[in-house]
Amino acid sequence: MPLDRASLLSGALSAPSPDPVAPFTIAAEPGRVLGLVGPPGSGLTRLALGLLAGFSRTGMVAVVDVRGWLCPVAAWEVGIAPDRLVVVRCPERAAWLRVSAALIEGFPAVYAEVPSGVSDADLRRLGALSRARRSALVLRPLGGDLPGGVAHLRVEADAVVWSGVDRGHGALVQRRLTLRVSGKGAQGIPRTIEIVDEGFPVSPPALDLAVHAVG
């Protein structure tokens, strides 16, 4: 099956096609919430950073790092300039909502890990704020899922397949992410897509990913 090239990033190119068989594009869009659901290791952090890279060309982008594990080297590799990235470490659930809201008010794009225990109502308020401020918000719940209706597009990691390593030989080179997308951003049609990420080293302006529908 031929792979359709698509941009992951640009707001201008992000409107999903109404045609269900056309290539599908994952994009962080101003005023929209994109939910990423999957355990650590499923490849979603790098995906989220790639989604912010397009915004970092014209402004600063922010990450709310709940675990304190985010490594900026990965962000630089996907094309975010060091002086355009701000990382706010916020392990405390009590402050998380206000920190995230403050960043949404001031940044064109925010990637926020969501700690366990944040109420559905608070997440909905954040979604409303991002729509009001025209800020692109990428949410990554660290435990559980996002409540229904918060994310314009919900992306759930299904599988990640790495290539480049064998029994002791080689090194990680390429990954193939299988993702299930649903929500309004997918016209309400749940589908499975595959992303081949081979952009290493990645240089600005964009992390180009190959996307094609597999189901």
């Binding site: 402004g59 600063m60 922010a62 402050a95 403050a102 001031g106």
Partner: peptide, 15 residues
């Protein structure tokens, strides 16, 4: 840019 500065100043006050 000013919006980002204000947001980060607020975040600094919180965390």
């Amino acid at each position: 840019e000013l919006d980002a500065w204000r947001a980060l100043s607020r975040a600094q006050g919180l965390v």
